[in-house]
């Protein structure tokens, strides 16, 4: 199954729409609740990042019988130092983002903890692509 969503810069009201919809799809496919939680928590964090730190982008999801692959690709400022961004507590979040309940510098480390494969690639001034894979068994 292939699913696609668009995320819009600064659109916090709709942040999480993609994750909610993926949650429903996985439940219908009888994926275990623990795995569903890992998938949607990671996807939600990535979605919020594209909305909070970049100028929006696309979420592409492919669900197979044994795994889910998610790609969150944004147009944005990019991440100059990915290793630094992956560190817990590192955040450049603007005050508006903090007011929304984000900006603790915990998103990327939490994605890492929840998925089986994480790949972050980024070009400064162009954008960031986060690829994640979660195996169902």
């Amino acid at each position: 199954m292939h699913l696609e969503y668009t995320v819009v810069e600064g659109d916090f009201v709709n942040a999480g729409t993609a994750s909610s919809s993926v949650k429903k799809a996985l439940k219908q496919l009888n994926v275990s609740p623990q795995v569903v939680k890992r998938v949607v928590v990671a996807l939600y964090e990535a979605e919020v990042n594209a909305i909070a730190h970049a100028y929006g982008g696309k979420v592409l999801v492919d669900i197979d019988s044994d795994k889910i692959k998610m790609v969150v690709a944004d147009k944005g400022p990019g991440i100059p130092d990915i290793a630094l961004a992956m560190q817990e507590g590192y955040s450049t979040a603007r005050p508006e983002v903090r007011d929304m309940g984000f900006g603790a510098g915990m998103g990327l480390p939490n994605m890492q903890k929840n998925v089986d494969k994480l790949n972050v690639s980024s070009e400064v001034g162009v954008g960031t692509t986060v690829e994640m894979v979660v195996n169902f068994v």
């Binding site: 709709n14 942040a15 909610s20 928590v41």
Partner: peptide
């Protein structure tokens, strides 16, 4: 004390 859409979304994602 956070009262916005993200509060509810977060609860949804985290069960």
């Amino acid at each position: 004390g956070l009262c916005n859409m993200q509060t509810i979304r977060t609860c949804d994602m985290a069960n």
